[in-house]
């Protein structure tokens, strides 16, 4: 039961955090001087086209851009009735994209679940590679296995993501015939789910997953190695060896379990950087995730669109962190009591 109560508590703090984040996001999207429509009005006036001005003025009223900033925020979030009653984020109305002249929910559509998919695949990749490599590096410390994995890890940390993407695409295409760009064959875009579509998505996912995951995997591998080395020096390891346990069984049974806790907790650090990486990589690789949308929205000052994308990205990391926190409490009973008191 305690775990349930902790989950509720954790969910509550997440909502509060999200509220603060929404204020932050709103401030950030309003930082550039003026807004999309007033800029457009100025432009139209300057070029002497008065026909468009009336429409833009109308839209300004429609989206309450002529009100005070705090009122705009309340209307955007749906805490206060706007020109059309309560209709904001919490009511599921994500606003209007001026650049594309369509509702925001229309534009992001498919890219939402693709973003989630790409990031989940990257997390799985990080754990699947960092775990064995970290353990091997620690168990065979100061041998060539350790040095090679450390070297690869450092290289992974130091190479900018987008370069890795270009290089992998180039060689992937040349030698392995991996398709370039996008997350699925263009033929499947907008098509309903089918087995062929899923296959196409999976093949396209290979390179992005590696690219997004590499930096996180190298960081995590190094940390796991350090944790494992700390544990390997402890007396219980000596006891296990002395009583004749096989080394691999001993590793998996004792030190790994202790070294594993920080590993799970680390997802809180891992996720933000991973989502960051996926935004950048998506732009370079032309993935149909939310990244390219964010970039165009920011460049054209399409504030509702960029605001929604920023909120979504934040929500994604917050949910991920929450899940990892709850998992951690389930794994390690010592943490629960601290968490509730604090």
């Amino acid at each position: 039961m305690a775990i349930l109560r902790y989950s509720f508590y954790r969910f509550g703090t997440m909502l509060l955090t999200l509220l603060v984040v929404s204020v932050l996001v709103f401030v950030i999207i309003n930082l550039p001087p003026g807004d999309y429509l007033s800029n457009q009005i100025n432009e139209l006036k300057a070029s002497g086209q008065s026909a468009g001005v009336a429409k833009a003025e109308f839209l300004r009223k429609e989206y309450a851009l002529d009100r005070a900033l705090w009122e705009q925020y309340m209307i955007w979030m749906g805490f206060m009735p706007g020109p059309h009653g309560f209709s904001g984020m919490i009511q599921g109305n994500f606003g209007w994209s001026f650049e594309f002249d369509r509702p925001v929910s229309d534009i992001v559509g498919d890219s939402l679940w693709l973003t989630v998919l790409v990031n989940m695949a990257a997390v799985v990749f990080v754990y699947a590679t960092a775990l064995p490599l970290g353990v091997i590096a620690a168990a065979k410390a100061r041998t060539w296995a350790d040095y090679t994995s450390a070297f690869v890890g450092y290289l992974g940390l130091a190479t900018p993501n987008f370069l890795l993407a270009l290089i992998l695409y180039y060689y992937g295409r040349k030698y392995l015939d991996i398709p370039i760009g996008g997350l699925m064959d263009p033929a499947f875009e907008g098509q309903p789910m089918s087995w062929a579509k899923i296959q196409s998505v999976l093949v396209h996912l290979i390179v992005p997953t590696i690219v997004i995951g590499t930096a996180g995997a190298s960081a995590m591998m190094q940390r796991l190695r350090a944790n494992m080395l700390d544990e390997l020096g402890k007396p219980y390891v000596e006891t296990a060896i002395a009583k004749g346990m096989s080394p691999s069984r001993m590793l998996a049974k004792y030190p790994l379990r202790v070294a594993f806790n920080p590993f799970v907790a680390d997802i809180g650090n891992l996720l933000p950087s991973m989502v960051s990486g996926s935004v950048l990589v998506s732009v370079v690789m032309g993935l149909q995730t939310i990244g390219p949308t964010l970039l165009t929205a920011l460049k054209t000052q399409d504030m509702f669109l960029s605001g929604f994308v920023l909120m979504f990205v934040a929500l994604l990391t917050l949910i991920g962190t929450m899940i990892s926190d709850i998992l951690l409490v389930m794994l390690d009973p010592r943490i629960r009591y601290e968490g509730r008191d604090a």
């Binding site: 955090t17 932050l24 930082l31 650090n269 933000p272 950087s273 935004v279 960029s306 920023l310 990205v313």
Partner: peptide, 12 residues
């Protein structure tokens, strides 16, 4: 700390 850096950098 819980927010992804790059989108915020981009926005700023």
């Amino acid at each position: 700390r819980s927010l992804p850096e790059l989108p915020l950098w981009l926005a700023l």
